[in-house]
Design a binder for these strands. Structure first.
Lengths: 180, 180
DNA sequence: GTCTATATTTGGATAGAC
DNA sequence: GTCTATCCAAATATAGAC
């Protein structure tokens, strides 16, 4: 990473990579600065606090989820489950690391707690569980949502072709959540 | 937690609770000490470093996984997938927090990297994928493994009756990984 | 086995020069 | 927009008394 080029975008990209590898609270601003070849003070010129960076990194993911849920909510009930599965599969594959940190990191979860985003995650699980929502389908929906971090966690999936992986996740969703 | 009773076991229990809620690197020894009503120095009497505590907390989980894999490896091939699913479902339900931290926390993953435990996790995934091991079944296996942290992540699953949740996870495994 | 006190390092954050 | 230098708080860890 060439010095003199640490724009806000580069800071977010470097941060996401480190958040993914070491966790949000395991990542210091010194680590971010060093990975960009600048000093901490340079970072602080672009963001006021570490928390601002965390929010800026995670925000696009939250927006994506909210948009997805709104779009799926507008569909006929019998299309909702698989539309959401397809949308989530796409996100989990295209933005593997962002998705993993958003879903998975404890600090991200704390940030989410009590916010509108928490409602969005809850709504996703309920949409996946369908109108019946017996405890079995709620459990399978939650398992599917947690399972979506697999593309970021498993080394072989991380290396797998995007389209193929996306198709595999969609099939997994159909098996787990499809009509009995 | 009464003071004067912070044995090594109590330190591990308090640490696990905090690791689960705040992540390993989000948990300080001060937090552990305060939750036990003692000082940091008392903790250091029982463990030499924070890393020692982390290892001591996670070790039982690793042992359980290793034992489970050895047991499943000795079974006839056509029984292996569902035996492993049942074993994992049991662990995921009974030791929700320990399981979640072990599988899920980035610091735990770093600790695992390059160790024998990494091989055990790999072996679990391969056993679940079965002998064919096309990329689709590898993806579904990885998704199931990641999905097993759902009981620790989802509030409703966290509250669900153990036996019922275990049965739901086993059914999810059968749907995802069962013979086509 | 736990305490008080302290050493040392790291992390978040700011001031002011260039 | 980046630097050096610095502040302050918190974290890991140790020493020595009780």
């Amino acid at each position: 990473m060439p010095r003199g080029d640490s724009s806000a975008l580069q800071i977010r990209e470097a941060s996401l990579e480190l958040f993914f590898r070491h966790g949000v609270s395991g990542t210091s601003l010194r680590m971010v600065a060093e990975s960009l070849g600048v000093t901490k003070a340079a970072i602080y010129h672009h963001y006021r606090t570490k928390d601002d960076i965390v929010r800026a990194v995670l925000d696009p993911a939250f927006t994506t989820f909210t948009t997805l849920v709104e779009r799926v909510d507008a569909l006929p009930p019998d299309e909702q489950v698989m539309a959401l599965v397809r949308g989530l599969a796409r996100q989990a594959v295209v933005h593997r690391r962002l998705y993993a940190v958003t879903l998975h990191d404890v600090t991200a979860a704390e940030l989410r707690r009590g916010s509108a985003q928490e409602q969005t995650f809850r709504r996703m699980r309920d949409l996946l569980a369908g109108p019946a929502s017996d405890r079995g389908s709620v459990a399978r929906s939650a398992l599917f949502l947690s399972g979506l971090m697999a593309p970021a966690v498993d080394a072989d999936l991380l290396a797998m072709d995007g389209a193929e992986l996306e198709a595999a996740i969609i099939e997994a969703g159909a098996r787990l959540l499809g009509r009995d």
